[in-house]
Design a protein around this nucleic acid. Structure first.
Length: 654
DNA sequence: ATAGGGTTAG
């Protein structure tokens, strides 16, 4: 039984349309269109496709399917519920199509990724057509679709029409045009629009800032010029516009640290300042408003990316109306700092206490915790969980499962997911399975899959190339690796990255071709970094080529003069051939630079307490007992013919 | 009715 309440906006709307409606003259008091509109509005609010269908049927019975408002609402709801074909049926049945209705279908096509249909309809909305003329709403909707489609040329053509009609002067249209350029990675074009806009609002600035972020991310060299970005944000302030929730959330996403560098600390400082800004400006986090949960999730993410999940948890605890995003953010925070028990606890709490239904993202997020705590069995459990919720065909989940299964020793399960569950594969699916085969020493299969991927029309990217090259390297498939490398560089115009090059050096080196590996380094376009010399070093150590080993160490010391482990290893190399004079010299060099060997540390968790140990560490309360046990173990090892090599460690026990 | 923000996978 549905009861209707008298609400403002809709009633007003109906009142205003009543004046022109042919229906009201006949049945003004109990106009069936009012009830139908209410029903449709309710179905949209309640996300009920069934209710929309019922309303549609009722509209048929009373002959109202061509009522402009009802048709518009039907089209809207069908598109929202991913039934664009039904929306099209309603649309086609209309004898007169107004701009509003066309815009609704246009936007619905966009929501359903039906870009070609959307462009087709847009093309019809011009002078001399049976369709109405495009207005400012049309343009903002079409720019959004063009942006999602990712075709700048198409966007420029649409912009041309917009300029002709004088519609790009509108602020919202201008903003959506900027967003379109941003999505296509054309920051300069977005900036041009921004500079030429007659009226700008906060959203214009937000579009500019997020456009800058999108254009900067992925460009390895000029990945993210922090200063310029914060200058942009300051420019917004000096134009008298305040940051709104959108601005803050974009900026917060840039405050995630990924290490302990100065730049990270800098970013973290900005992040905390933004948190203060939220509090000071009463972008309050505990009012339970939708936008506040949004900001809360951004904050949780920012804190956990900076290694401070505890503060993230405090933000989380204070959030009212926690949604799946907030829950996933905090769970992700705990997963990333390795607190798997806590993450799993929250994953359960989310469901039992907050009746939250995990989605594909939350399942992907919890997966590393399960594999870490319970190995292959844990991955299988999550997989089963996903199957019961019919989420097992989701691309990102499949990709995560392929990767985690193969890393947990379940290559056969990974293959099954790849072959039977992962219906629409992407570059990540292919590189995950190829990497998996490589990991399990099945280089030949990795090569077969790589070639199959190319035959299926996928262009290789650097990640998948690294996956297949490292597979070749591990399995000693020198010829295949060389062939693939040559092909991706010449046929697919992939510029060799440092990682790709170190795969090649590793591959040649492991195959015993140390000199060829060295020649490869010499002909590289890029400056050899630590990973490349490290690969050469490893290979020359395996094959006992101490001359090349020395060269690699010296190069490493040259490019990483502050990394003490290079000195230690070089010194160990000389110690092995009893060249104590050189050893002494190296250690003197280290002392002069003020470098110390970082002591190795190992630890074990027992009953939620972590016990850590350094070399020759006697500080543990049970130290005597532990060493007695250790001596007994060493003795037992020696008795079983294993002769542990203590030479290097003894050297540095002064 | 239109634009702009959040969690995940190699």
């Amino acid at each position: 039984m549905i009861t209707f309440s008298r609400t403002s906006s809709l009633t007003n709307h109906i009142k205003s349309t009543h004046k022109t409606s042919p229906f009201h003259t006949f049945v003004p008091a109990n106009d069936p269109s009012i009830a139908l509109l209410k029903l449709l509005e309710l179905s949209i609010e309640a996300h009920s496709l069934q209710l929309s269908h019922q309303s549609h049927a009722r509209a048929h019975r009373v002959g109202l399917t061509r009522h402009p408002l009802i048709a518009q609402k039907l089209i809207f709801s069908y598109c929202k519920f991913k039934h664009p074909a039904d929306a099209k049926l309603v649309f086609d049945s209309l004898l007169v199509k107004n701009t509003h209705i066309c815009n609704t279908l246009l936007s619905g096509y966009g929501k359903n990724q039906l870009f070609l249909e959307s462009f087709e309809l847009f093309r019809e909305m011009r002078v001399g057509s049976v369709f109405p003329l495009a207005d400012d709403f049309t343009f903002s909707v079409i720019f959004k679709s063009v942006g999602d489609y990712g075709d700048v040329l198409c966007g420029e053509m649409v912009q041309g029409r917009g300029v002709k009609n004088g519609l790009v002067l509108d602020t919202v249209v201008g903003n959506s045009l900027m967003c379109m350029y941003g999505k296509c990675g054309c920051f300069d074009d977005a900036l041009k629009v921004f500079n030429e806009m007659p009226h700008r609002n906060a959203s214009s600035w937000n579009a500019l800032i997020s456009g800058y972020v999108k254009a900067g991310v992925g460009n390895a060299g000029d990945s993210f010029d922090g200063t310029r970005l914060w200058d942009l944000a300051k420019g917004m302030h000096s134009e008298g516009l305040r940051f709104d929730a959108f601005t803050v959330s974009i900026l917060l996403s840039l405050c995630g640290g990924d290490g302990g560098s100065d730049e990270c600390r800098h970013k973290y400082g900005y992040g905390r300042e933004l948190h203060c800004y939220i509090v000071k400006n009463r972008l309050d986090l505990s009012s339970g408003l939708d936008s506040d949960v949004h900001l809360g999730s951004c904050l949780i993410d920012m804190y956990s990316k900076n290694g401070n999940v505890v503060v993230g948890k405090r933000v989380f605890d204070r959030l009212k109306g926690k949604n799946i995003f907030a829950w996933t953010s905090i769970i992700n925070g705990y997963v990333h700092c390795g607190a798997f028990d806590e993450a799993l606890f929250l994953f359960r709490e989310m469901q039992w206490r907050d009746a939250m239904v995990p989605n594909k993202v939350s399942i992907v997020t919890i997966l590393p915790a399960c594999s870490s705590l319970a190995g292959l069995m844990g991955v299988k459990q999550i997989h089963g969980f996903a199957i019961r919720r019919e989420l097992n065909h989701e691309l990102s989940l499949c990709n995560a499962l392929i990767d985690t299964y193969s890393k947990s020793g379940g290559l056969n399960y990974a293959t099954q997911v790849f072959d039977y569950e992962c219906i629409n594969k992407d570059a990540i699916s292919w590189s995950s399975i190829i990497f998996g085969y490589g990991l399990h020493g099945q280089g030949q299969n990795a090569v077969i899959l790589f070639d199959k991927m190319l035959r299926n029309g996928f262009k290789p990217d650097t990640t998948v190339v690294i996956a297949v090259l490292s597979a070749c390297s591990r399995s000693g498939l020198l010829n295949d690796g060389m062939r693939i490398y040559e092909s991706v560089v010449t046929d697919y115009k992939i510029r060799p990255t440092a990682e790709m090059c170190s795969c090649m050096v590793d591959m040649l080196g492991r195959a015993g071709q140390i000199n060829r590996a060295h020649d490869f380094i010499k002909q590289m376009d890029i400056e050899p970094g630590p990973s490349i010399w490290g690969a050469l070093l490893c290979a020359s150590a395996i094959h006992g080529n101490s001359e090349m080993q020395e060269l690699a160490y010296k190069s490493l010391i040259q490019i990483e003069p502050e990394n003490s482990s290079n000195y230690i290893s070089l010194s160990n190399l000389y110690a092995a051939s009893k060249r104590w004079d050189v050893v002494a010299e190296i250690r003197k060099g280290m002392r002069e630079r003020g470098l110390k060997k970082l002591p190795g540390c190992s630890w074990i968790s027992i009953n939620n307490a972590t016990h850590s140990f350094f070399v020759a560490d006697k500080s543990h309360p049970c130290s005597d007992l532990i060493y007695t046990m250790l001596d007994a173990l060493v003795l037992a090892m020696k008795l079983t013919c294993y002769n542990p090599d203590f030479v290097y460690s003894m050297e540095f026990l002064d």
